[in-house]
Amino acid sequence: MKKILITTGIFPPDIGGPATYSSILLKELPGFDYNIGVLTYGVKEQASKGLIYVVSNKWPKGIRHLVYFLKVLWLGRGADLILCVDSSFGASFISLLAALILRKKFVVRITGDYAWEQGVQRYGVKELMDEFQRKRYGIFISILRRCQNFVVCRADLVITPSNYLKNTILNWGAKKENIKVIYNAVSATEIKMFKEEARQKLNLSGRIMISAGRLVLWKGFGLLIEIVSGLKKQIPDLKLIIAGDGPERENLDKKTKDLNLENNVLLVGALPKNELAVYMRSADIFVLNTGYEGLSHQLIEAMAMGLPVITTRVGGNTEVVDNQENGILVEYNNKKQLEEAIIRLFMSDELKNKLAEKARDKAALFSRQNMISATVDLLKKYENFIIIKRP
Results as ranks from 00 to 15, higher is better:
Val152Phe: 09
Gly291Lys: 01
Ile110Arg: 10
Gly230Ala: 12
Ile285Val: 13
Arg64Glu: 00
Asp245Gln: 13
Tyr34Leu: 03
Ile208Leu: 12
Lys254Val: 01
Gln46Thr: 00
Val151Phe: 04
Phe286Trp: 14
Gly78His: 13
Tyr123Ser: 01
Pro272Arg: 07
Ile343Asn: 03
Lys49Leu: 05
Trp218Cys: 02
Leu51Met: 10
Val151Gly: 07
Lys105Asn: 09
Asp361Cys: 01
Ile343Val: 15
Leu329His: 10
Arg360Ala: 04
Leu223Thr: 03
Leu267Thr: 01
Ile235Gln: 03
Gly327Leu: 12
Arg199Ala: 09
Asn35Cys: 00
Leu345Gly: 05
Lys61Cys: 02
Leu157His: 04
Lys27Cys: 04
Ile242Arg: 12
Val55Asn: 10
Thr318Asn: 09
Ile285Asp: 02
Arg134Trp: 03
Val54Ser: 07
Ile328Ser: 05
Gly112Lys: 02
Ser211Tyr: 04
Leu204Val: 00
Gly17Phe: 12
Phe93Cys: 01
Lys233Gly: 00
Ser296Gln: 06
Thr111Lys: 01
Ile52Asp: 09
Gln369Leu: 10
Gly90Thr: 00
His65Tyr: 14
Glu383Arg: 08
Ala98Asn: 06
Asn178Val: 03
Leu231Pro: 01
Asn317Lys: 04
Ile36Pro: 01
Val85Gln: 09
Val278Tyr: 03
Leu259Asn: 08
Trp218Tyr: 15
Val54Cys: 04
Leu217Arg: 14
Arg313Trp: 13
Ser282Asn: 09
Arg77Trp: 15
Ile387His: 08
Asp284Ser: 08
Glu275Arg: 15
Lys61Trp: 13
Lys126Glu: 12
Pro18Leu: 00
Val321Arg: 08
Leu351Ala: 07
Val287Asp: 09
Phe93Asp: 02
Leu73Trp: 11
Glu197Thr: 11
Arg360Gly: 07
Leu365Phe: 15
Asn370Gln: 07
Gly269Ser: 12
Arg64Trp: 07
Gln324Pro: 03
Leu329Trp: 12
Leu128Trp: 05
Lys358Gly: 00
Asn263His: 13
Met193Val: 03
Gly78Pro: 07
Glu339Ser: 15
Phe194Lys: 14
Glu331Leu: 12
Met209Cys: 14
Asn203Phe: 08
Asp14Ile: 01
Lys27Asn: 14
Asp361Tyr: 11
Lys219Met: 06
Asn289Thr: 00
Gly119Ala: 10
Arg313Gln: 11
Asp361Gly: 02
Ile10Leu: 12
Ala341Met: 04
Phe89Thr: 04
Asp130Gly: 03
Leu252Asn: 10
Leu238Lys: 05
Gly78Tyr: 10
Glu293Ser: 04
Gly9Arg: 03
Lys381Ile: 05
Lys126Ser: 13
Tyr53His: 13
Tyr34Arg: 02
Met280Leu: 13
Ile225Glu: 02
Tyr382Arg: 14
Glu45Arg: 05
